[in-house]
């Protein structure tokens, strides 16, 4: 009972603080690479608290779906955090269907886009249009990756796909590397990170996510920012889970060690994203599909392994 309680506590702490720390880590890394000291790691949390104390400005054009969107998105993201195995240690349901998780992500995306269109602002609408385009390209890549591992394990349940006791997959680190990379690349696009979208420019006209939430303010903005960070953290967690399985020695490690590696892996990837954002430039919008194509390539290779995999065994 006591251990179950501490598990719950740990999980809640992770849900609340991991997204904030991931954001903080990325910012800190970028600042250090620019020879700045940078804001403290918990700065995103301070920002959220400050936003919560501010009042909200709403457009007269809005019909209410704008605020509904942020509420539903957060509820949905918390549900995903509850279902999806992005942490090794997690109290939660004993099944996590991969299609369900993808369509729950779609729920958030759809409401975010609708919220962006609600104000009648062209910024939000163009952001929504771009988001729709990106998700259209990225979704098959991430889905296909997980599906190809699923085909090898014979289940579409993520918990079974990722279970360490699954001996069938222990011998093929290649497929895990491919899928992890595919999900990581997809995450860069989904979370509007660097080569696709620059979250730090001042010009909303060129952006995707920031353009969609341009009209948000106060607590509403706090909800949206937190949801966005949580989404990125969950996806990072999923790719870390894949990468962990590519290293044979982790398969037989203690569960506690696995959990620790998982958590540190998330922050390691956050540092990597920070470094990548410092050395790369934002792609021209029309070149973005060429970047996303690499994510699909990884998944296609993984699916080739899955198609032939059983025959080669």
């Amino acid at each position: 009972m006591n251990s179950a309680l501490s598990l719950w506590l740990f999980y809640l702490l992770c849900v609340v603080f991991a997204p904030i720390l991931v954001l903080g880590t990325i910012r800190k890394t970028k600042a250090r690479l620019q020879n700045r000291i940078g804001p403290p790691l918990l700065q995103p949390l301070f920002d959220l608290v400050k936003l919560c104390r501010k009042s909200e400005t709403l457009s007269k054009t809005m019909c209410g779906i704008f605020r509904l969107a942020s509420v539903i998105s957060l509820a949905d993201m918390l549900l995903i955090a509850w279902i999806a195995p992005w942490l090794c240690y997690k109290p939660g349901p004993d099944s996590a269907d991969i299609f369900l998780i993808f369509y729950l992500f779609a729920l958030t995306r759809m409401f975010t886009m609708l919220g962006a269109l609600d104000s009648g602002s062209a910024f939000g609408a163009f952001g929504a249009s771009r988001e729709a385009t990106l998700s259209l390209l990225v979704e098959p890549a991430a889905l296909l990756g997980f599906i190809s591992i699923g085909a090898l394990t014979g289940s579409s349940d993520l918990l079974q796909i990722l279970s360490f006791s699954n001996a069938q997959l222990s011998g093929s680190p290649g497929i895990w590397l491919l899928v992890g990379t595919a999900v990581l690349l997809a995450n860069l696009v989904e979370s509007s990170r660097m080569p696709v979208d620059d979250p730090t420019t001042h010009l909303e006209l060129t952006m995707v996510h920031e353009a969609m939430i341009l009209e948000a303010s106060g607590r509403n903005l706090a909800l949206i920012e937190y949801t966005h960070a949580l989404r990125m953290t969950i996806l990072l967690g999923l790719s870390v889970q894949c990468f962990m399985r590519a290293i044979p020695s982790i398969w037989n490690a203690e569960p506690a060690v696995q959990g620790l590696i998982n958590l540190t892996g998330i922050f390691f990837l956050a540092v990597l994203i920070g470094i990548f954002e410092s050395i790369s430039v934002k792609l021209q919008w029309r070149k973005v599909p060429e970047f996303i194509a690499y994510s699909l390539t990884m998944s296609l290779l993984a699916s080739l392994i899955a198609i032939g995999g059983r025959a080669m065994k």
Partner: peptide, 19 residues
């Protein structure tokens, strides 16, 4: 062919050549 499609078709050919 656009570059992404060219890459994906070469992957399909990779699969085809293996099978």
């Amino acid at each position: 062919l656009p570059a992404p499609l060219a890459m994906h078709s070469s992957i399909l050919l990779l699969g085809a050549s293996f099978f």
